[in-house]
Design a binder for these strands. Structure first.
Length: 705
RNA sequence: GCGCGGUUAGCUCAGUUGGUAGAGCACCCCGUUUACACCGGGAUGGUCGCAGGUUCGAGUCCUGCACCGCGCACCA
């Protein structure tokens, strides 16, 4: 009998193992591709494989969603490293401007009873920096605990100096190309967050609403229906469908009325966008407080667009509505209509209310002077294509492919409906817009142009800087060696919920600024839900902390529980039971190693068994190449447990001629398993008297990718 | 309104180019004959949402329908 290391006499203990193993990996320097040695057989690493980590928000701690992301990416990265690629996985964290500022403001309000205005811009930013610094370290610790083989020497933060420089450069180039402009347009105003937000940050909620039919005045010929009576004091037109015979005779006529104390001048117009079947078939046009009405006003050259609601969702008109909140004003108008005998009827209707994703505030569309990105303007240096076309072409030309093809259609659908992107935010934390004003003059400049110049107060949408992530992390705008080697990145792996926010914006930024795609393939994972299929949220209290689970069952078990049974792009479920189940697998491996190590390495390799293993290795490899890592782990799991352990080991008992074959199977199984369960495989590998780390061993198949 | 998923064992889900229905968990029975009780052996359990069609053959392809979920737009 061979000597078995003493530690194998006890069950596998992940807690005693994982920290030390991670330290060894990190100290080896092999997370950094510059320090990565050739494969053990001397094959040099020539082909790069790069991924950027979707930077988690610094506000949070790691949840199961981030754990899934880290598990998937680490599995792919470890596989590619063993396949001989010059493998780079770049870590980072995201400033998440609005979310972070809101969080810190809330903390300060609670602890000191002060608002951001009490502190002032500089002080608030200092407090945020301190908060970010503290949180950052917690999150990095959690990523390490996951076993993530990230190259920490290239760590990036969206608000650090190199990224700041990239954001400024991007703004300047886009401004000079005429893609960024400042204009007074309807924005999505969040009265709760006191800022504009982009179309993608809106969540529609279905609610019951009162649809009221009324007339502006006794002699007004057409009744209109609305759910927002209070905005009617801002109406300047009534639109009907051009083919609607009921109203044809009135089109082009203009009327005056005093509506709830406010003088109105209303023109009746015909517009295709009106649905004759809805309400009375006549639409009161309120250009200042509705996107569609603004567009209708544009089409009919209606200049009058009075704003009647302010940033605090209060009425700004004279008369009885003055200063009232919108909900209150709505009731006042209704009473007034009834008293004036202008009320026709009231019915209940289902309405989609726009709310802000972050704050839950009801969006108030307002005209505001804001910064925008023009997605339709032809760009001379990009063959006169617009940003929209560049985004579309990147996917249509297959330069970017989706692992789940169905997301291509979702992506196109989004592009087709895309409006100008509002990129300015009325908060303090973020990249400040590099535009300066003095005496009516405007100047684009990163630094102050001199005395008397005042910088724009707004900061950029956080997704503006995130859009640069694949290349800002590689040193752009400098033409670094990293940028040449690793861009476009090979794979972008992230949740499908940020397809528009992030994936599309990265394609936009990269195709314009670099003239190339940011990544070749997109792998979208689904949401992690609890065992009942519910979304994991604080209010439900159903969050399972991955680090807690790792304390109980080992991180390898957490990783497998997340990956097994998860199809790309589909929501998956995770439960403590599932994690516990996979803890048994790590222990099984441990005991298999104990048995094999107790045998002599005698006899010849048994060709049938080796051939069977090679077939398995080929199949597993193919699954990983197809990014079906869920199928890969299940296949190797079953081979190892049901075939290798249950049958081959059992048959081998008392038969020394199996020795060499058992060692062959154990070593190669460990390699196949390493990307999925890195800790236990590394621990066993090193206990077998091997030189070096299994992390940089060669993948056990000769199949090319 | 436009679009995308899903519907397979009690539960959660696989099922890759059409070829006799699979796994894990749960449940039930047996087992401590030394790698492992964090285990081993065994059993039960499905007319694959419904209706048509193509085919020698359909969970898989086509058409229609139902229900569940999601995205986008509209919502006056």
């Amino acid at each position: 009998m061979a000597d078995v290391p003493e530690k194998f006499l006890k069950p596998y203990d992940p807690k005693a193992t994982e920290g030390a193993i991670y330290k060894q990996w990190e100290e080896s320097g092999y997370f950094n591709p510059d320090k990565l040695p050739p494969l053990p057989d001397g094959t040099p690493r020539t082909e790069p494989f790069s991924i950027v980590l979707p930077p988690p928000n610094v506000t949070g701690t790691l949840h199961m969603g981030s754990a899934l992301m880290l598990a998937i990416e680490d599995t792919v990265v470890r596989y590619k490293r063993m396949r001989g690629f010059k493998t780079l996985w770049i870590p980072g964290t995201d400033s998440a401007a609005i979310a972070t500022q809101a969080r810190v403001e809330k903390d300060i309000q609670k602890a000191e009873g002060k608002s951001r205005h009490d502190l002032g811009r500089d002080e608030l930013l200092k407090r945020i920096d301190a908060f970010v610094e503290a949180n950052k370290n917690t999150m990095i610790g959690q990523m390490r605990a996951m076993g993530s083989s990230l190259d920490w020497s290239r760590y990036a933060y969206t608000m650090d100096a190199p990224r700041y420089a990239a954001v400024m450069e991007a703004f300047v180039r886009m401004y000079n190309a005429g893609l960024i402009y400042r204009a007074n347009r309807i924005v999505n105003w969040d009265p709760k967050g006191q800022t504009t937000i982009s179309d993608d940050e809106i969540v529609h909620e279905e609610r019951q609403a009162k649809l009221v039919t009324f007339k502006y005045s006794k002699d007004f010929p057409v009744a209109v229906a609305t759910t927002r009576l209070e905005t009617k004091v801002g109406d300047t037109a009534v639109a009907v469908h051009p083919d609607d015979v009921r109203y044809k005779e009135f089109v082009g006529k203009e009327y005056d009325a005093i509506f709830c104390g406010v003088p109105l001048h209303i023109k009746i117009i015909a517009d295709e966008s009106v649905d004759p079947a809805f309400g009375t078939g006549a639409l009161g046009v309120t250009p200042a407080h509705s996107h569609t009405d603004w567009d209708i006003a544009d089409r009919h050259n209606i200049a009058a667009r009075p704003q009647v609601i302010n940033e605090f969702a209060k009425m700004t008109v004279d008369g009885p509505l003055n200063g009232k909140k919108v909900a209150e004003a709505r009731e006042i108008v209704l009473e007034w209509l009834k008293s004036e005998d202008l009320f026709v009827k009231e019915e209940s209707t289902l309405q989609n209310v726009s709310t802000a994703e972050r704050t839950g505030g009801i969006i108030e569309p307002l005209p505001k002077l804001q910064w925008w990105i023009d997605v339709d303007r032809p760009i001379a240096e990009r063959s006169n294509k617009s940003l929209k076309e560049l985004m579309r072409d990147a996917v249509a030309s297959k330069q970017v492919t989706f692992v789940s093809e169905r997301y291509e259609r979702v992506y196109y659908n989004w592009i087709d409906n895309l409006r100008p992107w509002c990129i300015s935010r009325q908060i303090w934390f973020g990249h400040r817009i590099p535009v300066w004003y003095k005496d009516g003059e405007t100047k684009l400049s990163v630094e102050s142009p001199g005395a008397g110049w005042e910088q724009d107060q707004d900061v950029l949408d956080t997704w503006f800087s995130s859009g640069l992530w694949t290349f800002s992390t590689l040193g752009w705008p400098a033409q670094t060696a990293d940028l040449k080697t690793y861009h476009p990145t090979a794979l972008l792996e992230t949740g499908y919920d940020i397809l528009f926010f992030w994936v599309a914006r990265m394609i936009l930024m990269s195709t314009f600024l670099l003239g190339e795609v940011p990544f070749k393939q997109v792998y979208l994972h689904g949401l992690v839900r609890d065992q009942k299929g519910q979304k994991i949220s604080k209010s439900l209290g159903n969050n399972i902390d991955p680090v807690d689970m790792a304390d109980k069952y080992g991180m390898d078990a957490v990783r497998v529980a997340l990956i097994a049974g998860m199809a790309p792009g589909t929501d998956s479920k995770v439960s403590e039971d599932k994690i516990r189940g996979y803890k048994h697998f790590a222990n099984k491996l441990w005991n298999m190693a104990r048995f094999v190590l107790s045998q002599e390495k005698s006899g010849e390799l048994m060709p049938e068994i080796v051939k069977e293993f090679d077939t398995l290795a080929t199949e597993v490899t193919q699954h990983i190449e197809d990014y079906r890592i869920d199928m890969a782990i299940e296949k190797v799991y079953h081979y190892v447990w049901d075939r290798f352990a249950a049958q081959i080991i059992e048959e081998s008992k008392g038969k020394p001629e199996y020795g060499a074959t058992l060692y062959y199977l154990l070593e190669n199984s460990l390699k196949l398993l390493h990307p999925f369960v890195p800790f236990v495989t590394e621990e066993i590998w090193q206990s077998m008297g091997k030189n070096g780390l299994i992390m940089v061993e060669a993948w056990p198949t000769r199949q090319s990718s």
